[in-house]
Write a protein that binds this DNA or RNA. Structure first.
Length: 341
DNA sequence: GCTGCCCCAGCTTTGAGGGA
DNA sequence: TCCCTCAAAGCTGGGGCAGC
């Protein structure tokens, strides 16, 4: 198919811009076979959306722009739009480049979106892999189960394991009761474990106040350790032992930035993806990763028996972002302060 | 030089689609 | 229904980089 000289020139400029970005990244170091868009994409699953695609968010933003006056939207569409806003915060260059697109650029943009997705999924896979081992270690240290959870396999996890079962059990049920334990394991209709219940591993000290299911929610040591492992480094999680809050989660980032114009310093994920504070979507990402690590499911998937991870991720995001009133809003803000303080 | 960490390349697994 | 092909997704070993 013939292409115009203008289109060819544009593509050439795009390629050169990409190469320039690469050179900026490398800063004279030995060349590494990575692309800018794959690298940028690594932040998407961690900070923006765990399951939806970049194209979905762009399409929702376009829809809102086109039908501004007669717009009605579902909760799903609102969540996508908030995702688009978050995406433009994480990848500030994206919105500008989308605005400059014309007909001839769409193929190029699709190729870039594909690379972003590649990076996004690769980062998710890396985190899944490292948390598989780390979560087993932390559970063994914290609860001393017998036999210990094996760090390199998952068959002994999930509801088959007493300790993983307890952590995965919906907080409103008492895992110690045999009827609950066997009901969940046999998947009887009274004990369906779905995304609509908060599992016990989300709670501070793994204890729940049955009169107030939001007390201590999303404050567990396991979550803080996992958050540190993902966004700073596994060793930072080991050093901190999960005490306190998420404060030092971002300390590495600050240190890295402080010296960014001087000597080269070791950077962490939070620094690489320019993460300045703990966000609801980052917490939701870590919650899903920990839930997956505690389960016996071998490879990443959306649905585990009756539990839908995508819906679970949406529930956590909505818990923070779609608050019904000012009182709930204040509660959520306090929780985020606890993470970021 | 050693260690820790990020992240990529390549291999393996999974699943969809089509033909016999 | 079974088998085959192919693409996508997932997993893992190791390269490269930075700190000590």
């Amino acid at each position: 198919m013939p292409t115009s000289s203008k289109a060819r020139a544009k593509r050439r400029i795009a390629v050169l811009e990409e190469e320039l970005e690469m050179i900026r990244q490398e800063k004279g170091g030995k060349q590494r076979k990575t692309t800018f868009y794959v690298s940028q994409g690594r932040a998407i699953r961690r900070l923006v959306v765990l399951y939806h695609s970049v194209e979905d968010m762009i399409a929702e933003n376009d829809r809102r722009y086109e039908f501004r006056s007669s717009l009605e939207s579902t909760a799903e569409q609102d969540r996508l739009q908030r995702g688009y806003v978050e995406l433009t915060r994480v990848l500030p260059w994206l919105h500008e480049r989308l605005g400059d697109l014309d007909q001839g650029d769409s193929e190029d943009m699709l190729r870039k979106a594909s690379n972003l997705k590649k990076g996004a999924d690769a980062a998710r896979g890396d985190d899944t892999s490292s948390l598989k081992e780390l979560v087993a270690t932390w559970v063994n240290q914290e609860f001393r189960p017998s036999p210990l959870i094996k760090s390199n396999e998952k068959y002994s996890r999930g509801f088959a394991s007493d300790i993983c079962g307890m952590l995965l059990c919906p907080a409103e049920w008492d895992w110690k009761q045999n009827s609950v334990k066997t009901g969940i394991r046999d998947r009887t209709t009274e004990y369906i474990v779905s995304e609509n219940s908060w599992p016990l591993f989300l709670y501070e000290n793994y204890q729940v106040n049955s009169d107030d299911l939001e007390e201590g929610l999303l404050k567990s040591k396991l979550l803080v350790l996992a958050f540190k492992a993902v966004f700073t480094s596994p060793s930072s999680a080991r050093e901190a032992e999960g005490d306190g809050d998420g404060a030092d989660v971002l300390e590495n980032n600050r240190r890295a930035r402080l010296r960014s114009d001087q000597t080269k310093v070791k950077t962490c994920v939070a620094s690489i993806i320019n993460m300045k504070k703990v966000t609801p979507r980052a917490i939701a990402y870590v919650v899903c990763q920990v839930r997956f690590a505690l389960s016996s499911v071998l490879s990443w998937r959306t649905v585990d028996a009756d539990f839908d991870y995508e819906a679970f991720w949406c529930n956590i995001v909505d818990f923070f972002e779609d608050t019904p009133g000012p009182v709930t809003r204040r509660k959520v803000e306090k929780l985020l302060e606890w993470w970021t303080r």
